[in-house]
Write a protein that binds this DNA or RNA. Structure first.
Lengths: 273, 273
DNA sequence: CAGACTTGTGAAAAACCTGTAAACAACGGT
DNA sequence: ACCGTTGTTTACAGGTTTTTCACAAGTCTG
């Protein structure tokens, strides 16, 4: 009655990197990964974390033995820089203490060589599985918000047919925000989701892009307010007609989203009911 | 200037269920779990999935050996019914095929007995960590208390739709308190959980914030008392309609919550002048 | 009841955040 | 190599929030 059925979702192919020198193991693994349609990169030594970022990986399989002394530091850096990356350690003998240390650091699974490639694959899958969940809902369907039309297929947003001329980052930020309408998103979260890796302390990129977005939104849709600032927290996307009477246009009655006004909304301008 | 800062999320304590008959293992595990401040339930046999749901678990540790023939079916049902639950299998001998089958089914980790409890804990941690990340970070389900509606997704609390205008810390303090309704929390505990690090001797921040909270609560919900002082101990959150006749509203009789008061409740009565 | 502590309060000081603009670096195409 | 575009970093001004303090008020102990 019960039948295993594989995900046939075409979109999210798993992107895996393997750092190991055990060529036999790597070869077999490659075959299996290829068969599964994964994208795979292998390396015989440590790969700089920023390169890992650029690869947009889903998972990393690593034998710390090839990293030498730097192993722990490396694992730590990778895990904290890429919290969404599934990290699986696969190595020879190891003590309980080492495994616990690794897992605490952020490693997701720790397997022992010799290991059956099939099991390694299955564990990588298990580690990767969570992430995809609930992600691919709004990939390419247009989103409407206020006067905006957000079209993922074009990487662009429009107001009555006119493009906002968003750059890629701007678009992705807007898309993310619009997809979580009503929720306050913290900067870390935003950065993590748009940039793909952990935000460095003191980074202001998010703020800067928010400003750019607001400018472009304002230019094409001056009567609406889209992005609200929550002091000490982050931003919330919630289109609402602003009280800024724009000369010719009668204020849109519009159902405001059911906002129980939230905290310290900085850009608040309220219609005189 | 890199500063370690711990998650200040109102610590969602891990809720773990263990299904196993190996009393030695379970006992040791319990101790560890308790030390870590987890909530733990153990059972010697299969627990119906709907009960698992009711327990609001974060993780499940199970030895399929105690499930008999039903094991696979059970695992399958649990994994597909509770995709957000971290499932760790811990059992004696097993074949690669079995492990692969389990992992494909949705099991997140599969460890082999005899297993060091510390490692089991670490793996459970790893699995829940991943799950929490994949999910929308914060417990975003609203909490109701008295007239209050606390909405983590907005970092804000409302009374009949009106925001209390809490700042971030105020909100987090309130959220913490509301999450431990009825319990008296010591200042150190509060500080630790909200601020994320140990309180310096003589620090009055908690008191100050409690005052701010009380003010804002009072402003929007004058007929209720939410925060009670326990002299020499700390504070307790427990919404109760106050006897203070608010002009128009007849005093609510209301059962006080069943508190085994341990210390003196300072009843705040405000002088009309 | 006095003395020793604890907690409530209000206000000032210090720390922190955000908007903004402009410099700087990285990239892609010619 | 040059140039325009995009993305990142830095600096600063103006607000907000958090912390700190001194003192008043309240609670417990003996």
């Amino acid at each position: 009655m019960h039948r295993i059925h594989f995900e046939l979702a075409p979109d999210p192919t798993t992107r895996l990197a393997v750092i190991d020198t055990d060529s036999g193991f790597v070869t077999v693994l490659s075959k299996r990964a290829e068969a599964a349609g994964w994208l795979l990169r292998t390396s015989g030594g440590a790969v700089p974390p920023d390169q890992l970022v650029a690869m947009k990986l889903n998972a990393l399989l690593v034998d710390p033995a090839v990293l030498g002394d730097e192993a722990w530091r490396y694992l730590d850096r990778v895990c904290s820089l890429l919290p969404d990356l599934g990290v699986v350690v696969c190595t020879g003998r190891s003590t309980v203490a080492q495994r616990v240390r690794g897992l605490r650091l952020g490693v997701d699974d720790w397997i022992t060589k010799p290991s059956h490639p099939e099991e390694a694959i299955a564990r990588i899958e298990a580690v990767t599985r969570r992430h995809r969940r609930g992600r691919h809902e709004s990939e390419s369907s247009p989103v409407l918000a206020g006067e905006l039309e957000i079209r993922p297929d074009r990487f662009q947003a429009f107001v009555s047919g006119e493009s906002l001329d968003l750059t890629r980052r701007e678009f992705e930020l807007l898309h993310l925000l619009a997809g979580t309408q009503g929720q306050v998103l913290e900067r870390e979260t935003i950065y993590q989701r748009v940039w793909g890796y952990a935000m460095a302390h003191g980074d202001r990129s998010v703020d800067v892009f928010i400003r750019k977005l607001r400018q472009k939104l304002e230019k094409r849709s001056p009567e609406w307010e889209y992005i609200h600032t929550h002091f000490g927290v982050g931003y919330r996307f919630d289109p609402e007609p602003s009280g800024d009477a724009v000369p010719n246009t009668p204020p849109v009655p519009a159902q405001a989203s059911p906002n129980g006004q939230s905290s310290q909304v900085v850009h608040k301008s309220f219609t005189a009911a």
